[in-house]
Simulated scan of single mutants.
Amino acid sequence: MVTCLGRDPDIVWSRLMAGLSGISRITMFDTSQCLNQRGGEIKDALPADGGPRMAALLDAAFRSALADAGLSVDDLKARRAALVVGSSFGNIFQTEKGPVELDHYVKPLLRDLGLDIPVLSVSSACSSGSDAIATGADLLDFAGFDIVLCGGVDVLDIYKMVGHSALGTLSPTRCTPFSADGDGTALGEGAALLVLERASGAALRGGHVRAILTSRASTTDTNTLTSPDLTGAGAMRAISNALVQTGAAVDGIAYINAHGSGTHVNDAMEAQVYAGMFARTRPAISSTKAAFGHTLGATGAIEAAISIMALERGEAPPTSGLATVHEDWRAAAVTLAGQPAPLPDGKLALSVTYGFGGANVALLFRQPEAVTR
């Protein structure tokens, strides 16, 4: 992963658990006409221009994911591999120099690595990164691929900041999901890729398995261009479908990494989902957007990685900056700032994303084997 909290998973996790946020004043462009001048900008030495910045983020995430999985480029060449990348527009609003392809930033990476593998580009608003992971699993299950790198990448730009300012979804103060005084989201940027392969293939090469993706499901509300179905019906259907696939029950879920964008509409919709499905079992729930910002097309992939790390470490991360929970969420086991929650062994982690227009995705993960702590 490449985020405003860092790149190394252990460092990112420690900062997240400490309640830190990577939201800071944006320096790449003039934000004076926006509702807020802050966002999850990555301060590393990256190109400022959107296209090369997308390429640099993907390059870093791709190489890091391969190394973490104990794979090489030659391994990808020797087996049937693919790349699936989600992005919510990326930098394609920057069209003054002419139109750009949605996946234009992928070609330089593959050229530099000497790789010729199939590439799928996914764009389903804020659910793009999650849908890319679900699509990667489909390629393994139904299309005969051996290894799929999948996830999301997106960058900050003035067009997105102005657009969310005009929509009124950008917080003029700070992003605090589930909060009594929440007033919107904060935008961010980043990238994350997961390496998916069959358990048999990983075992054969002695690969380290972080988690098992037990199931995935996507639904679409087709409600409006931006707003979700406020009843949460489509979101609940996605979660239910994912549970049915793996034969699990609601009480098997120990942790939910919520979409938790901090907007009134999303928080109210997710409250309906929680009340409708989890009021009895009360799994730990948190949002990491207060720490990373809403990274749009990358958010589902980053949050899937955080969900996996929560299972590995047996703790649910806190929601940065959250002190007083909104009345809609007071019956839920929301993790407050400075109060991470222990997770029991043998349970599932659920990562959910809900994009503009009602694009709902549910990803379920479990530990690869019983862990004793």
Rank of each mutant, 00 (worst) to 15 (best):
Arg7Glu: 14
Cys34Ser: 11
Leu187Glu: 04
Pro108Ala: 09
Ser261Val: 02
Ala45Val: 10
Leu194Thr: 12
Thr31Tyr: 01
Phe145Thr: 01
Leu225Ala: 13
Ala192Tyr: 04
Ala310Cys: 09
Ser64Asn: 14
Ala186Arg: 11
Ile256Leu: 08
Glu303Leu: 06
Asp75Met: 06
Ala291Ser: 06
Gly262Phe: 03
Val273Met: 15
Ala78Gly: 13
Pro368Cys: 09
Pro52Glu: 04
Ser87Arg: 03
Leu336Pro: 05
Met277Gly: 13
Ala48Pro: 10
Ser127Gly: 02
Asn241Trp: 04
His259Lys: 08
Thr214Cys: 10
Thr220Asn: 11
Arg198Asp: 15
Asn241Ser: 14
His104Leu: 12
Pro318Gly: 12
Ile147Ser: 00
Leu5Pro: 02
Ala370Thr: 15
Glu197Gly: 00
Asn360Phe: 11
Pro172Lys: 05
Ile285Trp: 11
Ser200Gln: 15
Met269Pro: 03
Val325Gly: 01
Thr299Met: 06
Gly152Leu: 03
Thr353Ser: 09
Ala132Gln: 02
Val12Ile: 09
Ile239Arg: 07
Val153Met: 04
Leu140Val: 03
Phe62Trp: 14
Val100Ala: 14
Leu115Ile: 10
Asp116Thr: 11
Asp328Met: 00
Thr222Arg: 12
Ala248His: 15
Ser240Ala: 14
Val73Met: 06
Ser14Arg: 15
Arg373Glu: 14
Val106Leu: 09
Asp345Trp: 00
Ser130Tyr: 05
Ile302Arg: 00
Ala291Pro: 01
Val155Tyr: 02
Ser286Gln: 04
Thr173Ala: 15
Asp8Asn: 10
Pro99Cys: 09
Tyr274Phe: 08
Asp8Pro: 00
Thr319Lys: 03
Arg330Met: 13
Ala331His: 10
Ile239Asp: 12
Val155Gly: 04
Asp59His: 08
Asp74Tyr: 08
Leu336Asp: 04
Glu270Cys: 00
Gly207Ser: 11
Asn266His: 00
Asp183Thr: 07
Ser351Arg: 00
Ala298Ser: 07
Arg198Phe: 14
Asn257Gln: 07
Lys347Gln: 15
Arg80Cys: 07
Leu115Val: 13
Arg373Lys: 12
Thr135Met: 14
Pro108Cys: 09
Asp157Trp: 01
Glu41Tyr: 15
Pro342Lys: 03
Thr222Asp: 07
Thr372Met: 06
Leu213Tyr: 07
Thr319Val: 02
Pro317Ser: 15
Pro47Phe: 01
Met1Asn: 04
Pro317Val: 12
Tyr159Glu: 08
Gly184Leu: 10
Leu20Val: 13
